[in-house]
Every structure is written in structure tokens, then in C-alpha cells.
């Protein structure tokens, strides 16, 4: 990935997570490990919606500071990812409301162009078309795609976040992709 070498998202097993969450309630260092694990997915998700690094950094900061302060009240039920992303989405919508501006997927396009110059195999026109079609989706559908393909959330995590059933999320997303694919053809 561009621009990110020094601090990487740390891999973490699902078994490790509950213990770490409990520890993070009273131990800032443990929260630091949670941060290491979640920073990039949260940042990418926010960047893809907000469209610039300044806003993404601002809202990412707010997200993690809020999570830090609210963590003592969080009850671990295996939904930490959903809980964190719920905060991120709330902060993001708050930011958008306060700044009242719209951002599309231009940021993704910029990155794509740079990667194309490096010789990425998939043709730029195709990806541009996919991106254009995604832009035509409604916000809820775009959000679903962001959560799955930008933030890399699992179906279970997305379902927890959106308060829906996992199979419903999967079905919705797959129908969406099928529609995109048919529009591509």
C-alpha cells in the first residue's frame, strides 16, 4: 500500500481479541494494540467516504479517542468491530453534516491512476467503469461495498454493525455485485 510502511496493522487472532478488550479498559498499552489492529481498516473506510487525508485523519482521531473513552462502558459480546465502526460512522456522518460537502470516489481514482502507471495488470478502463457504477449506487449500497471491500469487514461484522442478519447482508451484497457485473457486460 502507498504511504504506509512504518506502522502496520497487526494481525490478531479472534481468540486474542476479547482478552485484549478487557485489558484495554484499564491499560492504555493494550488499547494501543487494539489501535494497531484496527487503525488501517477504520482509516481506509473513512478515507473512501470523506475523500481526503485531512478529513480522514480528523475523523479517525475522533473515532479512536471516543472509543478509548467509551471502552469502559463497552460490554464484550464479540461485536467490538461493529461497535468501533458504529462510532466511526457516527463521527463520519457528523463530520459530513458539519462540513456539508459531498465526496465521491475520486480519491480511489487517484490511487488507481498511480498504480496503473506502475503496470497493474487489470485495465484502468475496467476499474473506472466499476467505480463509476458503484458511484451510481445509493449511499446504503455504497456503504456496504466500503465495509466489505475497503474496511475488509466480515459478513458477521457488517451484520452486527448494521443490525441485520448475516445471510441478509451476504444476499444483499451478492445481488449488488451481480447487478454491477451485469452492467459491466
Amino acid at each position: 500500500m502507498l504511504g504506509y510502511e512504518a506502522v502496520k496493522t497487526r494481525p490478531m487472532s479472534q481468540d486474542e481479541l476479547p482478552e485484549l478488550i478487557v485489558a484495554a479498559k484499564s491499560d492504555p498499552a493494550a488499547f494501543g494494540r487494539l489501535y494497531d489492529h484496527y487503525l488501517q481498516p477504520v482509516y481506509r473506510y473513512l478515507y473512501s467516504r470523506l475523500g481526503d487525508s485531512h478529513s480522514a485523519e480528523d475523523v479517525t482521531s475522533q473515532t479512536f479517542i471516543t472509543a478509548y473513552e467509551a471502552l469502559p462502558k463497552y460490554r464484550e459480546q464479540g461485536q467490538f468491530t461493529a461497535w468501533l465502526f458504529r462510532i466511526a460512522r457516527s463521527k463520519m456522518y457528523d463530520h459530513l453534516r458539519r462540513n456539508r460537502r459531498e465526496v465521491g470516489l475520486e480519491a480511489a481514482g487517484e490511487l488507481l491512476e498511480r498504480e496503473d502507471a506502475l503496470g497493474v495488470l487489470i485495465r484502468a478502463e475496467e476499474l473506472s467503469k466499476v467505480r463509476f457504477l458503484i458511484q451510481q449506487l445509493n449511499e446504503e449500497e455504497q456503504d456496504l461495498i466500503r465495509l466489505r471491500y475497503v474496511a475488509d469487514l466480515t459478513f458477521v461484522e457488517i451484520a452486527d454493525l448494521l443490525g441485520k442478519r448475516e445471510d441478509a447482508i451476504k444476499k444483499t451484497l451478492y445481488r449488488l455485485l451481480a447487478r454491477l457485473k451485469s452492467q459491466m457486460e
Binding site: 481506509r44 485523519e57 480519491a107 475497503v150
Partner: peptide, 12 residues
């Protein structure tokens, strides 16, 4: 789709 949605990662 993943490629089309690709975004930069956070500045170190």
C-alpha cells in the same frame, strides 16, 4: 471491486 475502491492507508 476491491481494486476499484482502493484507497491509501494512513500516513505513518
Amino acid at each position: 471491486v476491491r481494486k476499484a475502491m482502493q484507497t491509501p492507508e494512513a500516513n505513518p
